[in-house]
């Protein structure tokens, strides 16, 4: 099972401060996050390029932040004079969906409120999609970045956490890195059953 790579205690974390992305559309980005979503700009820096004289010259840039609740932010870098790099913004299909930022809301009312707000502003947004323990809506910003707003539909309990750890262990043991033995998900589910059985044997019998 888990083998710590260090004996040092895990320092604390208090949530996401910010995530950051490059943008080649600073105007549209500001109009979306500030004017459509209504997020407040909370920080912005500008800098002439760092390391100009190295083998890896750095363009002049701006770095600007929008508040996203609970002391978190979403931020963008605008590198002046650079060409848009579509590998950042034009992922297609499931890979595009896999890389996203998801914000949280506490209530169904807020979730539906975001749908209404986006539609009122002419932004395409999904209906509320229910997952295992999340209800989510999905949309994209002008850069093509995928965004989600999610509401936890029920609190996660100790069984959820325990099972998640077994699932992740099954994933690691089954697929390793790059899945060299070309296992399938069904292979992993079979392996997981063994982990669950071992786990249950360690529990006291239920009356």
């Amino acid at each position: 099972m888990a083998t710590p790579k260090t004996n040092l205690a895990t320092p604390g974390l208090t949530g996401v401060h910010h995530t950051a992305f490059p943008t080649w559309k600073p105007k549209a980005t500001v109009e979306f996050y500030r004017d459509v979503m209504g997020l407040k700009i909370c920080h912005a820096i500008t800098a002439t390029g760092w390391g100009r004289n190295t083998d890896h010259p750095h363009p002049d840039f701006l770095h600007f932040f929008f508040e996203a609740g609970d002391n978190s932010a979403i931020a963008f870098f605008y590198y002046i004079g650079t060409q848009r790099r579509e590998e950042f913004t034009q992922l297609k299909g499931y890979l595009a969906l896999s890389r996203h930022t998801a914000w949280s809301v506490d209530t169904e009312e807020d979730l539906v409120g975001w749908v209404r707000r986006f539609r009122d502003a002419g932004v395409r947004v999904t209906e509320v999609v229910s997952h295992e323990t999340l209800d989510s809506v999905y949309f994209k910003d002008p850069n093509g970045y995928h965004l989600e707003i999610a509401r936890q539909s029920r609190p996660l309990n100790p069984v959820d956490v325990s099972d998640a750890n077994l699932t992740v262990q099954a994933m690691v043991d089954t697929f390793g890195d790059d899945n060299p033995d070309q296992h399938t998900l069904a292979d992993m589910w079979r392996y997981k059953a063994g982990l669950v059985e071992d786990h249950l044997q360690l529990l006291p019998s239920e009356a």
């Binding site: 099972d163 589910w189 079979r190």
Partner: peptide
């Protein structure tokens, strides 16, 4: 996703 807890046999 419901079989995530584990299966014994062939899917």
């Amino acid at each position: 996703g419901f079989p995530v807890a584990g299966i014994v046999g062939t899917l």
